[in-house]
Computed example of a mutant assay.
Amino acid sequence: MGDGERAAARRPRRTTTLRVVEDFAAPPERVFALITSREGFLNAMPPGVEVLAWPEPFGRGGVLDLRWGAAGVYPVRWLAEIDAFEDGRVFSDLQVRGPFRFWRHTHTVEPHEGGTRHTDTVEFSTGFGPAGDLAAATALRGVFGPRLRRMHSDLERARPGSA
């Protein structure tokens, strides 16, 4: 199946889309390298996420195998396949197994005003209708703030010439 075909085959009739846009004072290649690195990924995740398998090299067809202790209580296994990949610009991970009825997360990096604009587009369905999706979207928005602050910090620390 081509890019997006597998996602289309799994996508339920109704999904919710959450889009988060953030600008970074770092070149696109550094931002892309951060979001596709195991270390950058782990640092951007909430506490309790464990990487069981990471694709090497990172690219289309690779599998992310994660375990997340939701609220430190119930371990959730999350398996996602990288179903689209354009080096240095964009990749999408599609949930193969996990807590959502459907989940596809697209990360897009593009030059913007001397730095980088990073866009997260999450298309998902909880399987619990609009109310379930609204609750999930609210929780997800709460996770993105700390994640983006950690990404800024990681990129700042890695800036050439910084102490």
Rank of each mutant, 00 (worst) to 15 (best):
G4V: 06
G4N: 03
G4H: 03
R6Y: 00
R6C: 10
A7I: 10
A7R: 11
A8Y: 00
A8S: 11
A9K: 11
P12E: 13
R13M: 09
R13A: 15
R14F: 14
R14D: 06
T15E: 07
T17A: 07
T17S: 06
L18T: 07
D23G: 09
F24G: 04
A25G: 11
P27M: 07
P27C: 10
E29W: 12
E29A: 12
R30C: 08
R30M: 06
V31Q: 03
F32Y: 04
F32C: 00
L34M: 05
R38Y: 05
R38M: 00
G40P: 05
G40I: 09
L42T: 13
L42P: 04
A44S: 14
M45L: 11
P46Y: 06
P46S: 05
P46L: 01
G48M: 03
V49H: 02
V49E: 10
E50W: 07
E50Y: 09
P55L: 02
E56Q: 12
E56S: 14
P57S: 04
G61M: 10
G61E: 12
G62Q: 02
G62F: 01
G62W: 05
G62K: 08
V63W: 05
D65L: 12
D65Q: 06
R67P: 05
R67E: 13
G69P: 12
A70K: 14
A70M: 14
A71Q: 15
V73R: 15
P75M: 06
V76S: 10
V76M: 11
V76K: 07
I82V: 15
I82L: 14
D83E: 10
A84C: 03
F85K: 00
E86N: 04
D87E: 15
R89F: 15
V90R: 15
V90G: 04
V90W: 11
F91V: 02
S92V: 00
S92P: 03
S92I: 07
Q95W: 02
Q95N: 09
V96A: 12
R97D: 03
R97T: 10
G98M: 08
G98C: 10
P99V: 05
P99S: 01
F100M: 12
F100S: 09
R101H: 03
W103L: 04
R104N: 05
H105F: 09
H105W: 06
H107C: 04
H112I: 04
E113R: 15
E113F: 13
E113V: 13
G114F: 00
G115W: 02
T116L: 01
R117A: 03
H118K: 06
T119E: 09
T119Q: 06
T121K: 09
T121I: 04
V122G: 09
E123P: 02
F124G: 03
F124Q: 03
G127Y: 12
P130N: 14
P130C: 13
P130D: 15
G132A: 06
G132I: 11
D133F: 02
D133R: 10
L134S: 10
A136N: 05
A137Y: 00
T138S: 13
A139R: 08
R141S: 10
R141D: 02
G142L: 03
G142V: 00
F144K: 12
G145P: 08
G145K: 14
P146Q: 15
R149I: 09
R149H: 08
H152N: 03
H152S: 01
L155M: 09
R157K: 14
A158L: 07
A158E: 01
P160Y: 15
S162T: 10
A163K: 13
A163H: 13
